[in-house]
Design a protein around this nucleic acid. Structure first.
Lengths: 361, 361
DNA sequence: CTGAAAGCGCTTACAG
DNA sequence: CTGAAAGCGCTTACAG
């Protein structure tokens, strides 16, 4: 349909130069009140919205952040995305939700800034990313990792609950309600991840409580979804492994466990207790309802956003410094930059165990 | 961190003019093979990704589509978004997922193209949008409405399952399994919507089957989520309304109904059968599992995307035509434009009723 | 307080 | 086949 209305249309309508319109839009205090009114009126009549593309191209901050999640099928990520977008909107930022579908390539591209549209920062819940992807990068936007510290790398910070202690909390709760043979669902490979940290906490606490820790009680799953959880619990049952509780790496796996136990006629929590992580909304609606480790989601979103924005603003400053430096004399400012980029900051988010029917004594 | 690598860096590295790089990137067949190789090598070494912002600003297609959904908390929308983004990626388009949180203002802004970054088309699952929002607009991107035809408007098409007949299918299934007092959950207001169409089909089929249709059996809910479904069923029960089946406007409401019935000691499906719409993944995991109307999601995504892309391409052509016309003589090309913009196209997506435990005889 | 200039990265005609 | 020019919408110095 008709052409988009540009700053020049507004200028013409208001009878001023189009640079003046820019001054009004950007709330620069140099415009006389009546000129300002005229311009505002014209903006309103024409329904003008500044085209951010012009600004973006101009350089400087785009005020946009990419949120990269492995999938949106997992309601935890869906909720996270929804909250992050709403919270960012309030702060004048735009969040573009990118679904990686567990593709290392997609994750890498974002982390390295190899995307068609530049952003000021990327918040990523990594799934296939490897430490080297973060260490190798010679450039790229500030990165906020949701979850474990894959590795310490410059310009990368982490926001996560304390997965090791939350796992210990889970074990304590289970031991306190009389369970001893705990099956861990969702063991993962070598790269440090949410799963490896939860397992580490599980193992440490189990050892401390002198619980059995046979290999057969530590189970990997194909994926972290309902069906994988169900299949792995069925498999354990078929193998004749005895256990009186399932500690699942997330709620989806736990829901699958619930289904497997029901299929085999085992009662939850009487025969087997079940716990998960994430406190998805669904956890309050399963039969029986599901005990789960709940991250303080508001805090998580706020911290991730704050880190992204501060990274974005720092990034912009640095660019300014660097440009200034280059313009001045091509000076080597590596010292200065190194200082402001010390990475490895980790924000720990509070969590609590929401006890529901799947683990009552 | 370091400046983004631009087309000029590549040109310098390859020892050609930067316009030649553009020719290579855009696969224009005017570049000699060895020049081309050199450029490709430089692109690879530098990790150059064309900055789409430059293209966007240049005008013409951005190859990006906005998908506006009311919420991501509803797993149906989350899955839709995930699929749409993946499908679009395959076709060289970008999908930006925008959560409106049921805000009429946000929905309106997108439909009118009053957004900070222009897109080629918008696919929207409207929640608060009114017919006038579509009729009034004098400009804006091609719109694909997911769901009912709010109204016939130029440059707006619809993609949806046949909600009226799917509701009739639900009633037929219920009558066939011996149910007569059906409670409808999720009645909505005056504006035509998914809910009103499902209710219309429900009402028509009920009348045809000579089922009771008292006002008390048609229930509105606060929202279309689990808790609203639960509350409304509890309310109906408290009012002493007798019913032997619940027809819920979506699966979330149905899951709430399941919980309410369980709380009151009613057995599903023996005492009360329950059906929903959407066939969310969760429907296969509830207790009992939930009978649901499943849209052919692949077809829905494909149709919505095809409609958006064809709208986008048509839009671009028109712009070209218009510009040409203006350049030539400021000719009035309204006739031409009117013809290519005839709106009101509706694509009907196949659906089927997935029968699960919540309605077995 | 307002106006004219330069430039962000790219593409689209056009000239050589 | 390759190069130089203009312009998309905007902001950021700078001049009047």
């Amino acid at each position: 349909m008709a052409r988009r209305v540009s700053i020049k249309d507004v200028a013409q309508r208001a009878g001023v130069s189009w640079k003046t319109v820019s001054n009004v839009v950007n709330e620069r205090p140099v415009v006389r009140a009546d000129t300002r009114e005229k311009v505002l009126a014209a903006i309103d009549e024409l329904g003008y919205v500044p085209n951010h593309i012009g600004r973006d191209l101009r350089g400087g901050p785009t005020r946009s952040i990419a949120l990269v999640v492995p999938e949106l099928q997992n309601p935890y990520f869906a909720r996270l995305a929804e909250r992050m977008q709403a919270a960012a909107r309030e702060r004048g930022y735009t969040v573009s939700v990118e679904v990686s579908l567990h593709s290392a390539e997609v994750e890498r591209a974002h982390v390295r800034g190899r995307t068609a549209r530049p952003v000021d920062a990327v918040v990523i819940s990594p799934s296939a990313l490897e430490p080297s992807d973060l260490l190798d990068r010679r450039s790229g936007p500030p990165v906020v990792l949701l979850g474990e510290s894959l590795t310490a790398a410059p310009n990368v910070v982490h926001v996560a609950i304390d997965n090791v202690s939350s796992a210990a909390d889970v074990v304590r709760h289970l031991v306190g309600t009389g369970h001893r043979r705990l099956l861990f669902l969702g063991a993962e490979g070598a790269v440090r991840s949410t799963g490896t940290d939860r397992l580490a906490g599980f193992t440490a606490a189990s050892r401390f409580a002198e619980l059995p820790l046979e290999d057969a009680l530590i189970r990997a799953t194909g994926a972290w979804d309902r069906e994988s959880g169900r299949e792995e619990v069925l498999r354990a049952l078929e193998e004749g492994i005895a256990f009186d509780a399932v500690v699942a790496g997330n709620d989806l796996l736990a829901i699958g466990a619930l289904a497997a136990l029901r299929e085999r006629g085992l009662r939850v929590p009487d025969d087997v207790a079940v716990v998960g992580w994430d406190d998805m909304v669904e956890a309050a609606w399963t039969v029986p309802t599901l005990t789960s480790v709940a991250p303080d989601l508001d805090a998580l979103v706020a911290a991730a956003l704050a880190a992204a924005i501060s990274g974005a603003e720092r990034g912009t400053e640095q660019d300014a410094e660097r440009d200034a430096g280059q313009a001045a004399a091509g000076a080597d400012d590596s010292g200065k930059r190194g200082a402001s980029r010390t990475g490895g900051a980790e924000t720990v988010i509070a969590h609590r165990l929401i006890v529901r029917e799947s683990t009552r004594a």
